[in-house]
């Protein structure tokens, strides 16, 4: 299997102006990104990645290399970043302790901060703010618990959750959405 660049749209030639030489230093300061510079491109992560096996575009080694090179926009705008299943196989097997899955998580966090947030995450965040639960659990299911002999579900405390999350960057995406809903 050949190693592709992360997304089909990314197969275009790289222009020198695309490199951000300081990007890697930004990443190694972030929690989970510390190991980035230690990668020596052995390919263990990609060869053991279950997603890479079934995807033509997703290659963790390529993502790590692109991050080292500073191809910031290409990575952050690439949809393939969201394919990682967070199975942590790469993290456990990387001979250099790069914590590959965490580096990818750091990149996703940055993509989100730059406005690229798949809808499902916004929906889950909104639901957590409203009820504590990541999914809207239908009333019917909550009522059914009793007939199945299950105790009532513990309640979330939306007001307290909001208070604790004050100042968290990601909140601005959710606040916008809940305003729209009102």
């Amino acid at each position: 299997m050949t190693e592709n660049v992360a997304a089909s749209s990314n197969k275009e030639p790289i222009r020198a102006s695309e490199f951000d030489p300081k990007f890697k230093y930004e990443l190694i300061k972030m929690h989970g990104g510390e190991g980035l510079l230690k990668c020596y491109q052995c390919g263990t992560c990609t060869s053991d990645c279950p997603v890479a096996r079934f995807s033509d575009d997703y290659r963790p080694r390529t993502i790590i290399r692109m991050a080292q090179l500073g191809l910031k926009d290409r990575i952050l705008k690439s949809g393939t970043l969201w394919l990682c299943a967070a199975c942590f196989t790469c993290t456990d097997r990387c001979p250099q302790d790069v914590e590959v899955a965490s580096v990818i998580r750091v990149l996703r966090n940055l993509a989100a901060e730059n406005g690229c947030v798949p809808q499902v995450f916004k929906d889950q965040a909104c639901s957590i703010l409203e009820s504590g639960y990541a999914y809207k659990i239908p009333d019917l299911r909550i009522k059914k618990r009793e007939s199945m002999g299950l105790p009532p579900l513990p309640k979330g405390n939306p007001e307290a959750i909001r208070k604790s999350l004050k100042g968290v960057n990601f909140m601005r995406y959710i606040e916008k959405k809940s305003e729209r809903n009102e």
């Binding site: 750091v106 989100a112 957590i128 009532p152 513990p154 309640k155 959750i161 990601f170």
Partner: peptide, 24 residues
């Protein structure tokens, strides 16, 4: 014993905000 109060553990939001996951 049931949890006196609950919110999502935060894992589903870790990909978009590690900070939010930590708080939750």
């Amino acid at each position: 014993v049931e949890m006196p109060e609950f919110n999502c553990c935060g894992l589903p939001l870790d990909p978009v905000s590690h900070e939010m996951m930590l708080v939750l």
